[in-house]
Structure formats: C-alpha cells, structure tokens
Amino acid sequence: MNSFITNNEGIVLKYIVGTDDFSIVGEVSSKIKKVLKQLNIDNKLIRRVAIATYEAEVNVAIHSLGGYIEVEIIKNEIKIKIRDNGPGIKDTNLAMEKGYSTASTKARELGFGAGMGLPNMKRCSDEFKIESKFGEYTELNMKFVV
C-alpha cells in the first residue's frame, strides 16, 4: 500500500498510518528519517522533520480513524502532508494552543497528551498549515527549507 515514486522533480513517498496497533506508531516516521539520512540531508534538519512527522503520526494514530503521510523531497524543499479520515477538529485554533488535549487514557499511558504536539510541529517546520472539517478530515501541510 505504501508507494515510492521518483521523477526528475524529486521523490514522493506515501505511507499509510493505521490506528489499531499502538506499538508500531513511529514506524513511518522512522522510515522517513532513514530516507532523509540516505539523501545526506543536514542532521539538524532531519531531526526537525523527524520530530514533526512523529508528532503528526502519533496524532493520526491516537486521535483519528487513520490516514496517510506523504513526503515530497524536491531540490531545496521537503514537503510533508498528513491527512486522515476524520473525525476532524472542531476548533483548530483551540487545538493549536499549548496544553489543549483531548487525548484518551490509553494515549496518556503511552506518554502523550500534553497538548504540545501541534505547537511543536509548527515550531519545527518552516511553514505550517492546518485544515480540518469536523466530521470529515484533518490535513496538515508542513514545509522545510533544505
């Protein structure tokens, strides 16, 4: 189900993120990190991308019905899109506030639910956009300058 496309414009990677197995959460971010390492991208930048991707992957796993992460690596830019199949976020401004969290007990037991994920993604990325339709989807778009 995962795909890998290369063309002269760059590389596009797409990974499915499920919600039924918490123990594999992070696998997608780990794979993305490995690809970036192979491309000899600066370690500090890789670390920022890895943190943001992982936070997003955890969110899809603990807050959504599942979705995907798409990574586009172009010459001087890394674009990451995370889209899920809902339930969406009612108030994205509220969700962006530090400390706001609706995380379940299960997610908290894993060490999540501080309400720091979305602000952290914004901090780590050079451009950050959140879009959500309640009852439908949440989509994040992040850009990193290489």
């Binding site: 959460v25 971010s29 780990s30 370690n43 894993l110 060490g111 999540f112």
Partner: peptide, 17 residues
C-alpha cells in the same frame, strides 16, 4: 531518564537522536 518502558520511548529517542 524515564519510568516509561514502551516502544514510544525508543521512537521518541530515535527522532531526537
């Protein structure tokens, strides 16, 4: 230093090197 022992601790450490 942590008292958590799940996969996510290792993943978190991995992302941060």
């Amino acid at each position: 230093l942590t008292g958590l022992v799940n996969n996510q601790v290792i993943r978190t450490a991995e992302m941060l090197d």
